[in-house]
Design a binder for these strands. Sequence first.
DNA 1: TATTACTTTATAATCTTTATAAATAGTGTA
DNA 2: TACACTATTTATAAAGATTATAAAGTAATA
Lengths: 152, 152
Amino acid sequence: MSHTHVHESQDQLKEALDTLKQTGVRITPQRHAILEFLVESMTHPTADDIYKALEGKFPNMSVATVYNNLRVFREVGLVKELTYGDTSSRFDFVTTDHYHVICEDCGKIVDFHYPGLNEVEQLAAHVTGFKISHHRMEVYGTCAECSHKDLH
Amino acid sequence: MSHTHVHESQDQLKEALDTLKQTGVRITPQRHAILEFLVESMTHPTADDIYKALEGKFPNMSVATVYNNLRVFREVGLVKELTYGDTSSRFDFVTTDHYHVICEDCGKIVDFHYPGLNEVEQLAAHVTGFKISHHRMEVYGTCAECSHKDLH
DNA sequence: TATTACTTTATAATCTTTATAAATAGTGTA
DNA sequence: TACACTATTTATAAAGATTATAAAGTAATA
């Protein structure tokens, strides 16, 4: 990881903590650690991933704490919950708008940026009479590593 | 339901049964009933919805049968599994390409047609190096009924 | 009809997530 | 700093969805 990326992560974490303070959410060591892990993680972890990753630092932490705080972060808008047909949800620290590409072979999730599809939302509103709030889109395929692996 | 729609459903069911025959999947009474329910249902039911809907006709049917056959249908391509953050998956009989609009208030799912977003897939392939197979998109909002309800 | 493979049933097990209650720790104020 | 109040954590149980297993039943085929 480059120095620039480290600084970005630190800034993002500080911003996130500020958001919590402003919203009146207490900053506990567990919350700090979960947020830090999410900000630095590029892997869209599950609740259990986070739980396992932090059990070294917090041997007594409960799974419920992870779930509770992920819910708090989601309600405050710091974290997005991704539900992709796997058995468990994955959690994504919210930065700029992006979509996800998911490897159907190994489950890897990669970000990719694309301008928001506002036209789609407008058409949906027109056709269905819904008041649209947002949309989600995921693209599925096979990552380069898995494509390569399959040749052997 | 109009006569035309009834005929459409019958045709779709017959086609689906043909697909099963061609693929070498046995057509049991339970499978027939589950497919029929899915074809006629406009509600994107959960496995449990299907189970409950058919327990009149099959008092001894096991939930496992529903799940097993939904998996079979999915593998053959007759049925799409929708995983939208609710606790349980919903199942959609595959007809023509369409997207879904989901009411965040009452959970209703409405179809809406939109030309496939091929450009998005192409960009994703270019940027990430994935071999793209498909994508999914859902639009979220509030349906007309719930919007109206909220005013009271 | 006998055999074989597939399917269903009944049940248990697994896995993710949520609920509960007691113990603990933050935060603001005197 | 110490107190009091409330939020949070922990430990555990419970709930809910899905899958695994093994025995019984059924379709297809020779």
